[in-house]
Design a protein around this nucleic acid. Structure first.
Lengths: 308, 308
DNA sequence: GAAAAGGTGACAATTAACGGCACCTTTTAA
DNA sequence: TTAAAAGGTGCCGTTAATTGTCACCTTTTC
């Protein structure tokens, strides 16, 4: 077997192993120790990340379990990937901060020179003036891993000690948020990631919720009608505005030609709601409740008051 | 270069071409005709589908014009790609509408079963409540290609016939926009993609701008101070709001502890500016000009008036 | 029918690949 | 403390793959 083919076979051979040593290669491929070592060097040059340990209990381990197969992308798909990666780079802060540039580089290296030009050209042609996260979010990765491991995080949130069981991470309006149940405060809530401090992952505790219970809490939270219901009249542009700047726990309700925005608020979300309604300008009119109408009018008056 | 590496390079080199001949390989890789033929045989053995034509106008053609890439991604990078692809799917409408799902599928198929689980889990954990484009944008692809080909598009824009030379496509506030110079109206502007009708690509015309001229026009447009300058006082939350909802052609100016938002507007952008300022709520106060102050106050009064 | 493209076979020259060996470093178990 | 077991390096002769050249073939097109 020639070297190039053997290397491919070795990749497959190794892909399902976490650990191996020279003997494995020597026996499986009928090669000398010297060649096995040379092959390992070649594989590393191909990008395989290996960690070697010397000593009696030594051996090799795959640092990353890698994606090893060939993938066929047509030119449209290549363009699409680069488009996506560029969009992600604009976002600046994601759980995968460092990865996007590396991916772009690896992919770009594997393109023909002329196609590289195409990619760079289309990167220049399209751009995202999107909402980059303003605050620093050092815990995005930790939070995501906590969700995946179904573990807990202990942190300070607005000065309060919380023990959170997070279940979803999401991006909205330039902020990273996560939905979590607080085992200390016994409440489900959406937390802003940038308002966490001293965040650490923590092993499970006895009173941790099961996944089903957690989803149940989230459902209760999202369909919480214990708050005050509201009803807001939208014109056509108002509907459009809502669709472009959608908030959870609000729905459009159509009654013939007329459209209402409905939902409910709690004291905790009251201020947010007023800020949000301001962005509708003339395209929304609060119908009920009176409390919301009054506060909204007061807010408008306060803004006007700045100029008197 | 060794054969095995050369074959990989040749794959990359050929992936871009629909047709090629032996000369191309010989020249590009500095090999003899005999070796080029042997390489082609090797590539076919690797699975590349080629069709050969003898005779004076002969050559080779790729039967499947796919890009053959073999890339090693670590688990972080795989997760990052899926993250990016999911974000793009949320966006619903991009120049690459159909591609993202296909890419996800192809990649997913190439992962070990255990890793597929991980990917699906992290897809469930993270999500983008982002601003999907509301309007249908059938011309995104055409516009992007027009930019890349440096060609023109003829279309109807708000009932007006325009002949546009577009130079950049971008996404902002749930809308796809593109920057273009109108050869009929002789003006540079940002156009909303969803407001185009009967859009067709068109070959160049004599009075088309050079790329440099186009960039110049864009620069003039962006730094257009012919409009009315404004000056708006921002508190801390106002600054944050600006950074999260940034508009082009506006800057923050710091004077000691005090921060102003400055820029300029034209009659065409006046209404947009007022809508935008509304979103600042109490966190912004217009200093100058008086015209803007008055109109803003009138807008507030009009909203208040809905309730009387 | 000549030119230009792809294609084959043979052979000598080159060079990459290989195994073997001596010897080094690190770790660990006796 | 020492020996064994693991990875690691340098050197060298042998072997086998790779390459270029050359002569000659087939097909297509001008």
């Amino acid at each position: 077997m020639q070297k190039s083919e053997r290397l491919n076979q070795e990749l497959i051979f190794l892909s399902d192993k976490k650990r191996f040593n020279l003997r494995d290669l020597m026996d499986n491929f009928q090669i000398s120790k010297r060649t096995a070592l040379r092959d390992i060097a070649s594989l590393e040059e191909l990008g395989l990340a290996l960690y070697a340990e010397a000593g009696r209990a030594g051996g090799y381990s795959l640092i990353q379990e890698d994606l090893l197969t060939k993938i066929y992308f047509n030119s449209d798909e290549v363009a699409a990937i680069f488009f996506a990666l560029k969009a992600m780079e604009q976002l600046k802060e994601t759980p995968f901060n460092e990865s996007f540039q590396m991916i772009s580089q690896k992919l770009l290296k594997n393109l023909a020179a002329s196609r590289q030009q195409q990619v760079l050209a289309s990167q220049a042609a399209v751009s995202f003036f999107n909402t980059p996260a303003v605050h620093h979010n050092p815990y995005l990765r930790l939070l995501m891993e906590s969700i995946l491991h179904d573990s807990l995080v202990r942190a300070n949130f607005k000065g309060q000690q919380v023990l959170l069981q997070p279940c979803q991470l999401f991006f909205r309006d330039g902020n990273w948020l996560f939905a979590a149940y607080d085992l200390l405060g016994q409440a489900f809530w959406n937390y802003r990631c940038d308002q966490l401090q001293n965040c650490t992952e923590q092993a499970a505790v006895p009173n941790k919720l099961s996944l089903a219970e957690l989803k149940q809490k989230q459902l209760e939270f999202e369909h919480d009608n214990s708050g005050q219901e509201f009803r807001i009249l939208l014109n056509h542009r108002g509907q459009e505005h809502f669709l472009k700047n959608r908030y959870p726990n609000m729905q459009l309700e159509h009654e013939g030609e007329i459209t209402y925005l409905t939902g409910s608020y709690t004291p905790r979300t009251f201020e947010y709601l007023i800020d949000y309604l301001l962005t509708f300008g003339l395209n929304a009119k609060i119908i009920t409740p009176e409390e919301l109408r009054r506060s909204f009018k007061e807010r408008l008056a306060a803004i006007l008051d700045q100029y008197n």
